[in-house]
């Protein structure tokens, strides 16, 4: 069950102490290797793309140029991704903060039913929504529009966001608002000036998680859009054609992969603690 092998008494104590580190190193390698390979493959020359050297024989940026070359329209795809993921995140936060605040602070009829619905919907399989959404959006002419991608993502992101934000709001003591109101704040001011700044870390964590999920969304974006100009980056990558137009363009795909993931990697490296805290708070409670 664990990585610690059954260590017999024959092993010296020193070796036993080292074993966990070996395990950790192996694990780090296992996680990193494919990612490393992506970066390295991206920097190979297209004609070397099936090389297996650990470092490219000749470094080259050709793959990156190919990503943005005529037929692939990747710049446009990146912009689409940014619009879709950005809008989704903003709307999710806007609706999510208000809902979570109400759920955390106020009492009203059917509150538990509301919570129940929100939790239950997190278990819905994304694929099963596909058919009805496709029919709905075909019916109202939303195929090949941004909203056809934003709105389902919003639906999928909201339950988690509301849940995370409710957790964060509940951690803030009620006395904060009361004290503010005693000091002359109106209720709205108490919310804006006291609660929102204090909840900022939680809101921020939720924003990052929502953005990553929306940025990586593939199924809806693939199904709701068939015009090249409206494709998001993740879909565009899967439809790349090589420089020659015939071969599987691994090099180009890897380069595009690097471009798509670099922003995410930076975000994760900077806000790692936050993301971990947010996810475990949502998952453990």
């Amino acid at each position: 069950m664990t990585a610690i092998p059954a260590t017999g008494p024959s092993l010296s104590k020193r070796a036993r102490g080292l074993l966990p580190y070996l395990g950790i190193a192996a694990c780090a390698l296992w996680c990193l290797a494919p990612f490393y390979w992506m970066v390295i493959s991206a920097f190979r020359r297209p004609q070397d793309q099936f090389d297996n050297t650990v470092v490219p024989v000749r470094w080259s940026l050709e793959n990156f140029t190919a990503v943005f070359s005529g037929g692939n329209a990747f710049g446009r795809a990146l912009l689409n991704s940014l619009v879709v993921a950005g809008t989704t995140t903003l709307l999710t936060l806007l609706v999510g903060v208000v809902t979570a605040y109400a759920l955390a602070r106020l009492s009203f009829p059917f509150k538990n039913a509301v919570l129940g619905i929100i939790i239950a919907t997190t278990m819905f399989p994304g694929v099963s929504q596909l058919v009805p959404l496709l029919k709905l959006f075909t019916g109202i002419g939303w195929i090949n529009t941004y909203q056809a991608m934003v709105v389902p993502s919003l639906g999928f992101a909201l339950p988690l966001s509301v849940w995370l934000l409710t957790t964060f709001f509940r951690q803030l003591p009620f006395e904060l608002e009361q004290a503010a109101m005693v000091d002359g704040c109106t209720r709205g001011q108490a919310f804006r000036r006291i609660i929102v700044p204090l909840a900022a870390p939680g809101v921020f964590t939720t924003a990052i998680i929502t953005f990553i999920a929306a940025w990586n969304e593939y199924l809806i974006a693939l199904s709701m859009v068939n015009e090249k100009d409206m494709q998001t980056a993740t879909v565009a990558i899967s439809k790349f054609t090589g420089i020659s137009g015939f071969d599987q363009p691994f090099g180009t795909q890897m380069a595009a992969g690097v471009i798509v993931t670099v922003p995410l990697v930076i975000v994760v490296l900077i806000f790692q603690r936050r993301i971990v805290a947010g996810l475990t708070a949502g998952g453990v409670k």
Partner: peptide, 11 residues
């Protein structure tokens, strides 16, 4: 956190 379509091609 990597997009599914990217890691799929990687693999």
């Amino acid at each position: 956190i990597l997009p599914g379509s990217v890691v799929a091609f990687l693999w």
